[in-house]
């Protein structure tokens, strides 16, 4: 909890400036459509079978993302997560996704859905959980 608070606090300090381009440690989200705004996720190393949070940032200030959906699955195992996540908007174009639990080690595919003015953008990313 303390670690998460510190993580969010450090994020808040940097949030006055538009956090694009992608910070070096962030995970770039791969959009399905070419015209989708650039987006990235920031997270600590995902723990195994324990809840963690990530911050998701969309980089186009002209497009205010209204809602974010998140899910994840393990393609090799063909199953997803055993928990739903909580998503909260913490600033314009910035969201916190919390209570993510990757309950098995291996490659997880992250799926993001962003809504803007009635349009939906989808993104994917991958993380390796040890």
């Amino acid at each position: 909890m303390i670690a998460r608070t510190a993580f969010l606090a450090s994020f808040a300090l940097s949030s006055s400036a538009l956090a694009c381009p992608t910070p070096p440690d962030a995970t770039q989200l791969i959009p399905e459509a070419d015209h989708a705004p650039a987006a990235y996720a920031e997270m600590n190393t995902p723990p195994l079978s324990a809840p963690f949070a990530m911050l998701v940032t969309f980089c186009d200030p002209a497009q205010k993302i209204e809602a974010l959906m998140f899910d994840a699955l393990m393609p090799a195992h063909r199953h997803g997560m055993n928990f739903t996540v909580d998503v909260s908007k913490i600033a314009d174009n910035r969201f916190e996704v919390s209570n993510i639990v990757f309950h098995m080690p291996g490659l997880w595919e992250l799926q993001f859905g962003a809504e803007f003015a009635g349009r939906a953008y989808t993104y994917i990313a991958e993380v390796q959980v040890k």
């Binding site: 195994l48 079978s49 195992h77 055993n82 080690p105």
Partner: peptide, 15 residues
């Protein structure tokens, strides 16, 4: 085996 029997307790605690 270690996909489910993971971590120090050898379980991921899930189903």
């Amino acid at each position: 085996c270690a996909f489910c029997h993971s971590g120090p307790a050898f379980t991921n605690g899930e189903f």
